[in-house]
Every structure is written in C-alpha cells, then in structure tokens.
Design a protein around this nucleic acid. Structure first.
Lengths: 107, 107
DNA sequence: TAGTTATATAACCCTTCGGGTATATTGAAG
DNA sequence: CTTCAATATACCCGAAGGGTTATATAACTA
C-alpha cells in the first residue's frame, strides 16, 4: 500500500503520470518531454512499475508505457475518510461568508 | 504543492494523520500511540506542519496538534482527472464479468 | 556479421531521510 | 530561584533517493 505514496512523492514521476493519463508513451518520448537523461527516465519508470502505477508493452526494442490507475484508486480510498473533514471546513467557510464579510482582512 | 505528497510518503506520518482525523492530540500522545521516541514524534510533526497538514495550538507546555485537511483537498484535486480513468477500468471489468465468467483463472 | 536504435542496469556521488541520544527551551509548580 | 514536565532542536549514523556516466541487453538494419 505504501509504494504508490512513495512513488508519487517525486514531482517528476507525477508529471510522467500526467503524460500517461492522455495516452501511452514510449520511454524515450517521456524522457524527452520532461528533459530527463535516458537512464534517469528509465529509473523513474522502474519505480512507477514497481508501484504498479504503469504497465509496459514491448514492441521490438520499444517500450510502450501506459497508466495503471488501480493504485491511485487505493490512494483515493485512503483519502476518502478525510473528504468528510475538508467538506466540513468548506461548509464552515461558506457559513462564515454568508454572515456578511470574508474571514480575512478584518480592519 | 509537492510538500504534502512527500509528507505522506512516510507510513508513520499517515498513521499520525489517521489519529488526528478522529480528534486533536497532544504531541506526547501521538508519540506514545505509535511507539516513537519523543524527538522522533516531534520531527514527524514538524514535517506535517511544514506541509500544512497539521496546525498547532499551544497550551502552556502542551502542544495540541489538529488536522488541517486543506492540502489533502489539493491532492484530491490532483487525483480528480485520474478518477475518470479508473472508473473506465472498473466499467471494463464489469462488462467482462457480465460476459460470463471472471477475468482470471481461465483453464 | 557488424552496426545502429531503444531501453535497462551498474557503479558512483552527494543529499536527504528516518531513527536514536543528548541538550536546549519554555512554562508551571514549589 | 530551583525543579519538573512537555516539547523542540542539534548532532550523528546508516539507509535510501535522485542524478550522472559507462556498460549491458535486445532487436532491427545494412
């Protein structure tokens, strides 16, 4: 359960997922799109693979990487009980706004 | 935007948030509940503070830590566009199941 | 077969991280 | 003012993380 969280801790890997959300990409495309060295891209992709966040399809020497959203669904499940919490915060904010003026910038 | 992701990469810190989701806790309570040394707990709490995930209220020498869910809402926003993706996967799975038998354990 | 393309792995550096112990800080209590 | 309580910070350690260069692997191409 922990691997997806650690994989997403790195911003470059989140950008990779953002790419893969649109369509599958070749390993090389990803590296180029993000300005990474070839081994750099390869290592990030390995981390994402081991976290189950991407799948690979081989085509000759090429590797097509595509998103596997299952671990993201798990993370969403972890977040779920907190959703109540911030909804309550938003509701409180709205109530406060309804009372006349915003919560900041009091004279 | 990145700090909450890195803060949540550590399982101990996720457990701390799970505690704070129920009610505010004293720093000492958190350490004891998770079997941490006192400085260990303090350092994790600092990371959560700097990520904006917790707020502190001072009461004499005590420190009450409470959840601030705002950064979690940001993470949820990051996840949102992926939600479509895994819904599609689930739909595909359901369609497959409807076709007769499950997707695994074919003879 | 030799050469080229696409990707992965190995080896190395340097920084960060999580954990622990020792010490500083702050407020309360006597 | 000294002592105690609760928490934070400093420092040290070994492990892990991300980046780089060099090398290995695998498949197509001439």
């Amino acid at each position: 359960m922990s691997l997806p969280f650690t994989a997403l801790a790195d911003p470059t890997r989140r950008r990779i997922l953002d790419l893969l959300r649109r369509r599958p990409h070749l390993a090389g495309e990803i590296g180029e799109a993000l300005g990474l060295s070839q081994p750099g891209a390869s290592k990030h992709l390995r981390v994402l693979r081991e976290a189950g966040l991407v799948r690979v399809r081989r085509e000759a020497q090429r590797r097509w990487y595509e998103l596997d959203p299952a671990p993201l669904a798990e993370m969403d499940a972890w977040l779920a009980p907190y959703r109540r919490t911030w909804r309550e915060s938003l509701d409180a904010l709205e109530r406060h706004l309804d009372e006349g003026r915003g919560p900041e910038e009091e004279p």
